[in-house]
Computed example of a mutant assay.
Amino acid sequence: MPKKININIEIITYGELNDLAKEDQELLEAAEKATFTSYAPYSNFNVGAALRLENNDIIIGNNQENAAYPSGMCAERTAMYFAGSKYPNTTIKTIAIAARKGEEKEFIPISPCGSCRQAMLEYEVKQDENIRVIMKGTDQIYELSSISDLLPFKFTQKDLFE
């Protein structure tokens, strides 16, 4: 007999930047700023990500495209991989993501792509601590308490070895 499973994900919404804690405002502003230095000549879609580490450092990343499309890299993974390289044993507390089209100043609240979700989940599992996610739009801001909320049917190292 088929059985339904409900997956509940708590999403906190904010109407404006001032509704957030100062450190989250700072993180979102860093993500927004990163969109202005992304390299997106093909998609014209500029994405910025900013991580807050447990030592309070902020690491930014942005999307880097390439004429050979699969060779580019998303903002979230750019930031995560840099943090993993420079601060291999430092916990990532929060990631903020902002995106905008072309030269527009309006931000779009986007969710990370599947590849980024999987890569970010690896860091969350590795550090055994949730990574908060904040996604910025001009009129709406979304907050999730964990990368796992973005990937409820996750694939982790446990699947490989258990």
Rank of each mutant, 00 (worst) to 15 (best):
Met1Arg: 03
Met1Asn: 08
Pro2Gly: 04
Lys3Tyr: 07
Lys3Phe: 11
Lys4Tyr: 13
Lys4Trp: 11
Lys4Arg: 08
Lys4Gly: 12
Ile5Ala: 08
Glu10Trp: 04
Tyr14Leu: 07
Tyr14Ile: 03
Glu16Ile: 06
Leu17Met: 11
Asp19Lys: 08
Leu20Ala: 03
Ala21Asp: 09
Ala21Gln: 06
Asp24Lys: 05
Gln25Val: 03
Gln25Arg: 10
Gln25Glu: 11
Glu26Ala: 07
Leu28Arg: 00
Ala30His: 00
Glu32Val: 00
Lys33Gly: 01
Ala34Gly: 02
Ser38Glu: 08
Ser38Asn: 07
Tyr39Cys: 10
Tyr39Ser: 12
Ser43Ala: 13
Ser43Met: 10
Asn44Glu: 12
Asn44Ala: 07
Val47Trp: 04
Ala49Gly: 07
Arg52Thr: 03
Glu54His: 01
Asn55Leu: 02
Asn56Thr: 12
Gly61Ser: 00
Asn63Leu: 03
Glu65Gln: 06
Glu65Asn: 05
Asn66Val: 01
Ala67Met: 09
Ala68Arg: 02
Ser71Tyr: 12
Cys74Ile: 01
Ala75Val: 04
Ala79Pro: 05
Met80Ile: 10
Gly84Met: 09
Ser85Gln: 12
Ser85Tyr: 13
Lys86Ala: 10
Pro88Ser: 13
Thr90Trp: 07
Ile95His: 08
Arg100Tyr: 10
Lys101Gly: 15
Lys101Ala: 15
Gly102Ser: 15
Gly102Thr: 14
Glu103Ala: 14
Lys105Leu: 12
Lys105Val: 11
Lys105Thr: 11
Pro112Trp: 03
Gly114Phe: 12
Ser115Ile: 08
Cys116Trp: 04
Cys116Ile: 08
Arg117Tyr: 09
Gln118Val: 10
Gln118Asn: 15
Gln118Tyr: 12
Ala119Pro: 07
Met120His: 04
Asn130Arg: 06
Arg132Phe: 02
Lys136Cys: 09
Lys136Pro: 10
Lys136Glu: 09
Gln140Asp: 12
Glu143Phe: 02
Ser145Ala: 11
Ser145Met: 04
Ser148Asp: 11
Asp149Arg: 02
Pro152His: 06
Pro152Lys: 06
Phe155Thr: 15
Gln157Tyr: 15
Lys158Thr: 14
Phe161Asp: 14
Glu162Ala: 12
Glu162Asn: 15
